[in-house]
Design a protein around this nucleic acid. Structure first.
Lengths: 134, 134
DNA sequence: GCATTCAGATTACAGGCGTAATCGTACTGC
DNA sequence: GCAGTACGATTACGCCTGTAATCTGAATGC
């Protein structure tokens, strides 16, 4: 197993990152590199997983090109190959495409109706709108 | 098979509507009631499906409580039991929870960065913001 | 009446996913 | 040196999903 350096691999292909895999990615985005045991310390309690589960997910993510491995003695240190922001952006756009015909305003309208927007959210969105108009 | 009347059933439980199932729902949200053959006319060409596929998906959606059946001779007319807006709202919130810690503004920021916001989007969001401040 | 068609019900199968257990090997501690 | 531990690799298995084929019975057309 060699260390991979292709940063966009998982996000340009058809490989999806599953929900469970995503939880592992979040732990590694938060702090990396980490060993499998360390990742398990991060997520196993709140997810109710054991170490074999984490190791499987790590291995799948490596296969999908989402993680790089770096030998450290007999174990690996795992590092994300995709930026969280790239993943988040792709998932956001995917939702907008799937449910809103590619337009973001209806998504916003839905969130507004659902009262999912706090006053802070509104202030921040207004600020972003002002910046976009420059 | 009886006609169901529980409108929130699929969205309050753990049943997810899969991507393929969602395509069927969209056809029925667009126009319902429809027979299986009619649904297939709507989606089979663009999805590359055949009638057995559509019939399976319809049956699964009925099992999940997302569709109601209405006998029409020997065939069924299918009708959504969940509103599109409810489904869309749930999926939107799910994404926000999963990727943005429940806050909508960062989602908006991501879409803005990705240039996924048109001028029309911006104008409409501004209008909605004004309404929300009333 | 019989053959054909139609429609829902049932079955099929491969791959993905979730959550592991198990295997094989190397390392560590006594 | 040996037993225990740790680690990645491999295997396991049930459920879900995608995309059907097939079965069964009723309706239709000739």
């Amino acid at each position: 197993m060699t260390t991979r350096t292709d940063n966009d691999h998982a996000e340009t292909g058809a490989e999806r990152i599953s929900d469970a895999e995503h939880a592992v990615m979040e732990a590694l985005w938060k702090r990396s590199p980490q060993t499998a045991a360390e990742v398990c310390e991060s997520v196993c309690k709140e997810r109710g997983w054991s170490i074999p589960t984490v190791k499987t997910l790590l291995s799948r993510l490596v296969q999908k090109g989402a993680l790089a491995t770096q030998p450290d003695g007999r174990r690996y240190l795992y590092t994300p190959l995709i930026a969280r922001s790239a993943y988040v952006g792709t998932e956001s756009k995917r939702l907008v495409e799937r449910l809103f015909g590619g337009r973001a305003a209806p998504l916003f309208a839905h969130l507004a109706q659902a009262e999912a927007l706090s006053e802070d959210d509104i202030a921040e969105i207004e600020r972003l709108l002002r910046e976009m108009k420059k």
